[in-house]
């Protein structure tokens, strides 16, 4: 009994000691607060994780909530960086200037969505309107698009994913009136891009969507070209050698791509500047590719 007790005391002393060692001195840390786009939350978190490992004196706090909340937080000063998945509108910039905030724009990554089908599917390109009709359930046989006589099987992502939201906004868009169209109820929901690719690669009648970077080198999937309208040229997000078609994605010829931005208040300095430099460095852009977004080609493209 005595031995047990002394052991317990010893153990608790060790634990206490360990706990006191582990506790970092928080008041020495510089805190960077980031708020904004849900699409960018995971990417930002990854940047922050790596950056904080390199600079233990910096603590980065990231919250999502959407691009709108990011702008609001930048304006009222609760965030030092705003993650925004679109460019600020003129009205928003004017409003910011009224509040003595000068938004500075930094392109940090590219987001491109690829439409994928089974390689055995004879269809190579679709127009945006056709894609909308497919995913809203209006078209449900490949024959109506010039393919084989098969029912179209839709694959999508869970409704919390940023890709789901982006695809819904840009492709499904708003129908007559101002009501947002929804995905057809028959859309199968898969957990993550990997499961989605796996399903489409085995399903001759399947179609799905996901980050271009992830699918570019898959031989068991076909990436469709997209036409803006009936008369436009079909544009593929990848080139014939399976590399990304940077040019089309960059200048927006490929319809399903967008820049992701970080906005600061005025010219960034100190820790914020260093963090932004890290994001735009080769290492930061490597993380972009790892997270299935498209890295920027040149690392200094402040516009």
């Amino acid at each position: 009994m005595f031995i047990l007790k002394s052991k317990l005391v010893f153990l608790s002393i060790i634990l206490l000691f360990a706990a006191s060692c582990k506790n970092p001195q928080l008041h020495d840390k510089t805190v960077i607060t980031i708020r904004g786009s849900d699409t960018m939350v995971n990417l930002s978190q990854k940047w922050a994780e790596v950056y904080m490992k390199k600079n233990p004196k910096v603590s980065i706090q990231i919250t999502g909530g959407g691009s709108g909340t990011g702008i609001a937080a930048l304006l009222n000063g609760t965030a030092m960086l705003a993650n925004i998945s679109r460019e600020l509108k003129d009205g928003e910039i004017e409003h910011a200037r009224e509040l003595n905030v000068e938004p500075m724009k930094f392109r940090v990554a590219l987001d491109g969505i690829a439409l994928i089908v089974n390689p055995s599917n004879p269809i190579d390109s679709l127009t945006l309107i056709q894609i909308r009709k497919i995913f809203s359930g209006e078209l449900n046989n490949w024959m109506e698009l010039g393919g084989e006589d098969r029912r179209i099987v839709l694959y999508g992502r869970e409704n919390s994913s940023g890709t789901y939201e982006y695809f819904r906004q840009t492709v499904l868009g708003t129908a007559n009136g101002n009501q947002q169209l929804d995905f057809a109820t028959s859309t199968q929901v898969l957990q993550g891009t990997a499961a989605l690719g796996e399903a489409v690669s085995h399903d001759r009648s399947g179609i799905g969507y996901g980050g271009v970077g992830y699918f570019a080198n898959r031989k068991d999937l076909k990436i469709l070209s997209i036409k803006k309208d009936n008369n436009a040229l079909p544009i593929s997000p990848i080139e014939s050698d399976n590399n990304l078609n940077y040019e089309a994605i960059y200048n927006g010829d490929y319809s399903l791509s967008r820049f992701l931005y970080c906005y600061t208040n005025g010219t960034p300095s100190g820790e914020i500047k260093e963090f932004l430099d890290f994001i735009l460095s080769e290492e930061g852009q490597k993380i972009v590719a790892e997270m299935e977004y498209i890295p920027l080609l040149d690392y200094q493209n402040q516009l």
């Binding site: 109820t185 028959s186 859309t187 199968q188 929901v189 898969l190 957990q191 499961a195």
Partner: peptide, 19 residues
């Protein structure tokens, strides 16, 4: 979660995706 396809359809057909 992994095998049913997770399409929230109002269906009674066991050969369709369900959630």
């Amino acid at each position: 979660l992994m095998a049913s396809g997770n399409a929230a359809e109002l269906t009674l057909d066991v050969f369709r995706s369900v959630r």
